[in-house]
Design a protein around this nucleic acid. Structure first.
Length: 468
RNA sequence: GGCCCGUUCGUCUAUCGGUUAGGACGCUAGGUUUUCAACCUAGAAAGAGGGGUUCGACUCCCCUACGGGCUGCCA
């Protein structure tokens, strides 16, 4: 019987949730959800100086917006410090760790000398095998007594079999001189205690995996399955960092992308299921597997995200779009919609959302239904409402008064009128558009008429014919 | 410096020794059209370089180049 899958996302709260972290979280989430497993969240806040509650809040809200729900409460690594220390002392008692009294200056001097001589700069503590009787009464750190012979092998689901010679491994510090645990110790203890079965994380941790394996070994704990995924690079191929184009996930929300599109795009970035490009969450969870993850770093391509966004908007149901539009407005500090506006928006939604590339664009398209009479045409629209056009619109009005209000019928009426004047449909459609929307860009004039209804349409035509 | 990982069209990728190296985004040309889009058709576009292994390498091995990561009492 297979043990149930448990994955986790373990960000350090030193800044916002960036796109790379979001993808790591997504992969863990997909893997767990696709297998009826658990997806846990742990905040790695053992670095007190750099951790902030604001960052934790930003990460949580970012995950929430992305729709990546985690099981149980988020765990604070810092709050588990006692347990980490307990494990360190256990290793100490069992001889798997030792007290190192070397000062920072001594270590620095060692490294400088090593560099100068071209040797490995991995610190080799003289206290590793020292007789406890010789221990001074001074501050010390606890170091893991790593194996020096043989090799450590990581069977990685993405990277394959990775072999490290043990003489390349250092005796990492697991308890600082103030008694607090380091990340290297804490991750192992927490992952074990939380029952994590699969560790999917950035490949910047690949080397660490070998070092952490020492702790698993010392404690006699089973080693989880590792999957080290490549980092995401910026559009110029350089590493993504906060000062180099890395944006928080909430920036993408503010750009107007729906979360479903982001999930699809991020999943496809570095992972593939044959030639499938556009898929739902259900398909993604069903298809996702570690073997489909690539080994090379990927770059962000917003154009492709735009394309996926258009497809997702087209299949999202109207209510869901409106729901997320509300949070988009909040995120962009825009005024919320009135109930009347929301109702109007919902009526027009099929036209508004179709192939839209952002919530911003949906709002643009929705302008005709969000504004009220009398409509102030913008400059370009004003130009198409010249006297000749206005008289044609005037002529159109009686035809509309008693027409059955269906798209096809309206199209015929306007088309016939254009033909009577020996004009192309465009010659009437443009002023009509200006009259109904006050702009030169809008949804189809016939769609607008249907959404607006007879009374409002006639009123706007009347305004345009008599105005200015 | 040492160790580890990577390298297929501009970008994301398929291929898991035998393909005219496929798809998607973007791009170019043409078409359609009531605006912006969208849509339709066509097209250009790739295995970093060099050695092996093999009847046969994008695929396996080695070297080089380039990129990235780690090398902290950061995570």
């Amino acid at each position: 019987m297979n043990s149930p899958v448990v994955t986790r996302f373990a960000p350090s709260p030193t800044g916002f949730l960036h796109i790379g972290g979001a993808r790591t979280a997504l992969f863990n989430w997909l893997y767990a959800r696709g297998r009826g497993g658990k997806f846990l969240l742990r905040i790695e806040d053992t670095d007190r100086a750099r951790s902030t509650p604001e960052a934790t809040a930003a990460i949580l809200s970012g995950l929430t917006w992305l729709g990546l729900d985690w099981d149980g409460e988020a765990i604070s690594q810092f709050e588990r410090a006692d347990r980490h220390a307990e494990v360190a002392h256990q290793m100490l008692a069992q001889g798997h760790a030792y007290k190192c009294f070397a000062t920072q200056d001594e270590i620095e001097a060692f490294r400088e000398a090593a560099r100068a001589e071209g040797r490995s700069t991995l610190y080799q503590s003289p206290w590793r095998d020292a007789d406890p009787a010789t221990h001074p009464d001074a501050p010390y750190v606890v170091r893991v007594k790593a194996a020096r012979d043989g090799e450590t092998v990581i069977e990685d689901s993405v990277q394959g079999r990775v072999v490290f010679r043990n003489d390349q491994l250092d005796d990492m510090v697991c308890l600082r001189s103030d008694g607090t645990p380091t990340y290297m110790l804490a991750v192992v203890v927490d992952d074990h205690d939380m029952g994590v079965t699969h560790i999917i994380r950035g490949d910047d941790h690949l080397n660490n995996a070998a070092r952490q394996a020492q702790v698993y070994q010392a404690m006699g704990w089973p080693v989880p399955q590792f999957a080290h995924i490549p980092l995401i690079h910026g559009e110029d191929g350089k590493k993504l960092s906060k000062r180099h184009g890395a944006l928080g996930i909430e920036d993408y929300q503010r750009m107007g992308y729906p979360s479903a599109a982001i999930r699809n795009y991020l999943a496809r970035l570095g992972w593939s299921h044959g030639d499938d490009e556009f898929f739902s969450d259900a398909q993604a969870t069903e298809w996702f597997d570690l073997g489909g993850i690539g080994r090379a770093p990927a770059r962000l391509d917003l154009k492709k995200l735009d394309h996926l966004t258009a497809q997702h908007f087209s299949v999202l149901d109207d209510a869901a779009v409106l729901q997320e539009l509300r949070s988009y407005l909040t995120a962009t500090d825009a005024a919320p919609l009135s109930e009347t506006q929301e109702e109007a928006l919902l009526r027009a939604m099929p036209q508004l959302k179709d192939k839209a590339k952002s919530f911003g664009q949906i709002l643009e398209r929705a302008h005709f239904v969000l504004t009220q009479r009398p409509i102030q045409p913008d400059e370009k629209a004003g130009k198409s409402l010249d006297p000749v056009s206005r008289s044609i619109l005037n002529e159109l009005t009686p035809h509309l008064r008693n027409a059955s209000w269906e798209r096809e019928r309206l199209e015929t009426i306007v088309g016939d009128l254009a033909a009577e004047h020996g004009l192309g449909l465009g010659k009437i459609a443009q002023p009509l558009r200006a009259a109904l929307a006050g702009r030169t860009v809008s949804p189809s004039v016939f769609d607008m008429m249907v959404v607006l209804g007879r009374e409002e349409t006639l009123a706007r035509l009347q305004d345009a014919a008599t105005g200015g």
